[in-house]
Amino acid sequence: MSDPVQRPRSFQEIILALQTYWARQGCAILQPYDMEVGAGTFHPATTLRSLGTNPWAAAYVQPSRRPTDGRYGENPNRLQHYYQYQVLIKPSPPNLQDLYLGSLQAIGIDMALHDIRFVEDDWESPTLGAWGLGWEVWCDGMEVSQFTYFQQVGGHDCHPVSGELTYGLERLAMYVLGVDHVMDMPFNDPNAPIPLTYGDIFKQTEEEFARWNFDVANTDVLLDHFVEAENECNAILSQEALDPKTGKRIIMAHPAYDQCIKASHIFNLLDARGVISVTERQAYIGRVRTLAKACADAFVQTRAGGWSEDAA
């Protein structure tokens, strides 16, 4: 499955080990998406590429933001900004569970000493109009990954089915490195001339963002931004497929989807500010879902989404 590895000593070594491992399994190693997202799934390399018939294999780190989880950097394992490692392979290979277990070995988890379990956890993203079946993977009682076979995304049935793996990197790394508080975790080599801990890099930002997320973010402005993103998304998708300037068929699924991502993140911020009630939540989630579905509808009309001139 994989080469025997030395126990990693830092957060970044674990990331690098995962990158190397999944590159060897044939995945394209992508870079994070350059927008604020709540999870790696929002990256268009997952959301959009899981649609249509074209095969796909990608892996990447995705910084993820969950404003409500901010704890001013004080909680040992809760952050408003953290990293997910995401793998998406379409069609899901028959040995995906083995490939996944190989990745745990690659980051130094000794299969002979630990108790790895696949515990039912069906995944559903009401904002993306998506769901799948799978598990949370437990290592000695700790959830280290989410493992999902996508069944539907953006309201479209997935055919073929993608297999998605999501690793919560901080939690996983803390476990592997034996660290109790995320801020104490070595980020780079602890023997480097300038050793840096996770806290050196993120303690202050966690404080700053927690304060802004919870108490300062201007909710009136955010509410306006939400509507603007919604309007822009719809405006983009209402354009004719034929670009009058180039004469080409250009459906702008990705720019529209960017607006959907934006709306989703603004909703998360509003939620953290406590201005959205249980009942309103549903309405907002529904509005984002409508955008996600419209983007999915548009994407499957593009080449990357499986559309072809001949079939049309």
Binding site: D115, D140, G141, M142, Y175, D180
Partner: peptide
């Protein structure tokens, strides 16, 4: 879900840690 060479010591330590968190 398994026996180990260390009689579950690693597994138990891991579980205790998760519970503490």
């Amino acid at each position: 879900n398994r026996t180990t060479a260390d009689d579950g010591a690693t597994i138990l330590a891991g579980n205790e840690k998760v519970l503490s968190a």
